[in-house]
Amino acid sequence: MQSVSLQRGDTKVFQNFNLQVQHGEQVALVGPSGAGKTSLLRMMAGGIPAESGDILHGDASFAGATPKELRSLRARVGFIHQDHALVPNLRVCSNIVAGRFGRQGLLPALRALIAPTQETRLEVLQLLDQVGIGDKIYHRVDSLSGGEQQRVAIVRALFQKPDALLADEPVASVDPERARDVIGILTKVAQEHNLTLVVSIHDIALAREFFPRVVGLRQGKIMFDAAPLDLQEGQLQELYSIQTK
């Protein structure tokens, strides 16, 4: 991200914001509510356009991209939502095949949705096995627990075959033990698939445990950008305490 600015209503969320993430890197975004973590991730995914500056994805640029180019760029970025954003009354398999719809036309997409090929089902099954819920492939999503649904959302993003995975508070609605599982799975599969991973997370302990790079964000500014071992307690206290003033 190069000199990116974004304004929402009267609020300047980002002004000349810069952040560089290398391919295959795993980054945790931490910071208080309203720091701009979600906006940052959505800009990185091409969901909201920056008012100025540019977001580069490899050699490709979001700024000035045509709608077709934008669709193609979005298809290269997997996004995992806090509330999963799955279709609750469809089966797990149908939700996962949707991950590749950005690269497919209407008819192939509908065919994959209604009658996925044996090859597709095997691919889905292998991915589900990686996150430990291979036996749920034909279950309806609304019959799964919150943690299982989050794994389905992860697999949908993986099935997309993205270059980068972005996750917005993926463990905000699960208990601490399952949160640890989900973050563990997320970092493991990102490493196995050689994906860039950027995750916004509230739990500093999880961020420090699982991510080699932690970025502290407050009011649209980077407060620190460091490896977990280099993080000072004072930096964390400052990140959150100023917000309460």
Partner: peptide, 28 residues
């Protein structure tokens, strides 16, 4: 419309996202 917008987010066309993300929920 969360699933619809999520699908749009990863580049899915409007009609496909409507048929796959919204219509199944409204069908019953």
């Amino acid at each position: 419309d969360r699933a619809y917008h999520a699908m749009r987010g990863f580049g899915t066309g409007k009609l496909t996202a409507f048929i796959a993300g919204l219509l199944p929920q409204a069908t019953p």
